[in-house]
Computed example of a mutant assay.
Amino acid sequence: MNEHDIRATIDKHWAASASGDQVAEHEIYHDDAVCEYPQSGEVIHGRHNLLALRSHHPGKPSGFAVRRIVGQGNLWVTEYVINYQDKRAHTVSIMEFRDGKVSHETQYFADPFQAPAWRAQWVEHVLHPIG
């Protein structure tokens, strides 16, 4: 699979995720895929378990916005923002592909925080709305 095809597969994955289509969202994964959540120390083994875990999430996202996708070869990174019941989670997904499907994914989730006043003179304050 070439990079154009991988990017199209990723775009389809995130569109399915945003629309709540759990089956289409998980077509991107190998049956033996591994997904890691380093902040909680969890490792999910297998597409079936990943689909089950996400399907049982008690706080379904109410908004989802991809900020950017970059990648080359078999390694792709997506930055996105998820809104869970009026709380934003800034998220990074690192996907490793094998034979056109994700074999390993690592996801990092970060809560927003207030910017300290001392650095205001050097920065632009931008909020990224969720669409």
Rank of each mutant, 00 (worst) to 15 (best):
S40Y: 08
L75Y: 11
G73D: 04
S103M: 12
R47Y: 10
S62Q: 14
S103N: 10
N83P: 04
R88P: 02
E96V: 00
V66Q: 06
Q85S: 14
G100T: 05
D99N: 11
K87M: 07
K101C: 03
N49V: 15
V81Y: 00
R98D: 14
T78M: 10
Q72N: 14
I82R: 08
I69R: 12
Q85I: 05
G46H: 11
H45F: 11
G46P: 06
N74L: 01
D99P: 05
H90D: 06
F64A: 04
I44F: 02
P61A: 09
R98K: 08
R67K: 15
H90P: 01
H56E: 12
D99V: 05
T91D: 02
D86R: 00
N83R: 07
V66K: 09
L53F: 12
R67N: 14
S55C: 00
S55E: 00
H48W: 12
I69P: 00
G71L: 01
H104R: 11
S93D: 11
G100F: 10
A89Q: 01
I44G: 06
N83Q: 09
H45A: 13
W76G: 07
F97G: 06
G73N: 15
I44T: 04
K60N: 01
R47Q: 14
R54N: 14
I94N: 10
A52Q: 14
G63L: 07
K60H: 06
G59P: 00
F64S: 03
A89F: 08
Q85L: 05
I94E: 10
